[in-house]
Design a protein around this nucleic acid. Structure first.
Lengths: 251, 251
DNA sequence: CAGTGGTCTAGACCACTCT
DNA sequence: GAGTGGTCTAGACCACTGC
């Protein structure tokens, strides 16, 4: 029935077919990757996409349902379907898991300690899929709640994507870094993998976080990915859990 | 159209309607709670459920889709739809997040240090929705990989549900605790909330885990829920992250 | 009011599993 | 082959949004 997709199989190999809605899903994801629609934009309506792809509305619907479940799109009844953005509170706390022991989860104050371009060390290069020595941006940053610091972050970004990033531009912004990355540098962070360990604060860290030397800290190593599972950020965080805890829901 | 559900609204209040598939979802969940179908069992086919509830197959399908997404059910093409169980490898690692620095994630050896009935301390009672002083079971347990211990757990269970649990019964079993709980005590753990902090090992803990005193450890406080969001387990774990890390995927 | 997503139906056909 | 879930269609109607 209807349009022939799946026309993209390798030369000699037997073509592999996939369900129509999966192919539609792929086409929409390509549109997101290519920047056809930017974060916050409305994508075409289900009816229009159905016409464009020559499939039924139900098929488009299933594709969009899955993309919404993966947090790439957000449906709003009566309005349309929109590209997810980090400005929404919901998305912010998907990535910021520290919660105060007392009171609500709220957005912390950020102080940029440093922002400079450096050649990628081997480990960072490997994680970011670059070559050792390629240009990267290193940001060091301190998060605090009402004057009390609780997170020290070291953030590595590919230099090629984040041109013109400076300490000043970062400092001026009151929005989360991920919002800035998507609005100013066109890079939408989609998902992340974290490796969490317990470590001790050395003298330098202890001073910055205003805690005793050898205090226990969470060490959180994060690799963040954009569309197409492309790694675009390495973040090494040290979290003080004296007044906060890392919240996780297993389901 | 068709059967009138939603007949369960409070006396004076205006009845609130919900989509049919949500109601079907509720009915299936009730069946799971009531034990109509046990973990591993096949539930009735979509066609039969549709007939039973007097709705279309598509509506049942949407209900089941959501329950499968919540990991309560597992679909198997050509076979049927089954109640999820902790015996499957997939489900096991949903709750065991520690991964070795080197090598694959694998299931650890377990040693029961202690298993006895105690009156619930106030904190545990609150978390388990019991009264302080109610009967609970306290299990202390050590996990290790090839002789090296890396997790010390303290597990609290409601005494009323876990009658006849003993150190011996636990020790004999080679399956994960959650498998045992569901097969022997009819309690299926469905989801959990964790609070993670960094702490230091005291002398007692250090000895058991064979690490130096004041080593950094992950402190993981977990509350586990069955069907209907009923809390049925409190687990306080201390994880050594010398050779392991806690793996988390943010999406 | 028109346009959007949300629900529900009825039916066709496919893919997989077991006997 | 019979029975299961998986895909796809076409169309109806509802609920919400904004003009």
């Amino acid at each position: 029935m209807s349009a022939a997709f799946d026309s993209l199989s390798g030369a000699g190999s037997a073509p592999t077919f996939s369900p129509l809605y999966q192919q539609i899903k792929g086409l929409i994801t390509q549109g997101l990757q290519a920047g056809d629609w930017k974060p916050g934009d409305m994508i075409p309506s289900e009816i229009e996409l159905a016409a464009r792809f020559k499939v039924s509305q139900g098929t488009v619907r299933k594709a969009i349902d899955e993309l919404a479940a993966e947090n790439l799109l957000v449906r709003r009844q009566g309005k349309g379907t929109f590209v997810a953005t980090h400005i929404e509170a919901r998305t912010q706390f998907r990535f910021l898991r520290l919660t105060p022991d007392e009171g609500e989860q709220r957005y912390p104050d950020s102080r940029i300690l440093e922002c400079r371009r450096v050649r990628a060390p081997a480990e960072i290069a490997r994680l970011l899929d670059l070559r050792a020595g390629d240009s990267t941006v290193l940001i060091r940053r301190l998060l605090s709640h009402s004057g009390t610091p609780f997170v020290l972050d070291e953030i590595w970004l590919p230099g090629a994507i984040f041109r013109g990033i400076t300490s000043e531009r970062l400092a001026e912004s009151k929005v989360p870094l991920y919002s800035l990355f998507e609005s100013e540098f066109g890079t939408k962070m989609v998902r992340a993998d974290e490796q969490i360990r317990a470590v001790l604060a050395d003298a330098t860290v202890a001073e910055v976080l205003k805690i005793p030397v050898r205090s226990p800290l969470l060490s959180v190593d994060r690799v963040t990915y954009t569309y197409g599972d492309k790694p675009v950020e390495v973040r090494k965080g040290l979290y003080s859990t004296r007044d906060h805890y890392y919240k996780n829901e297993l389901s």
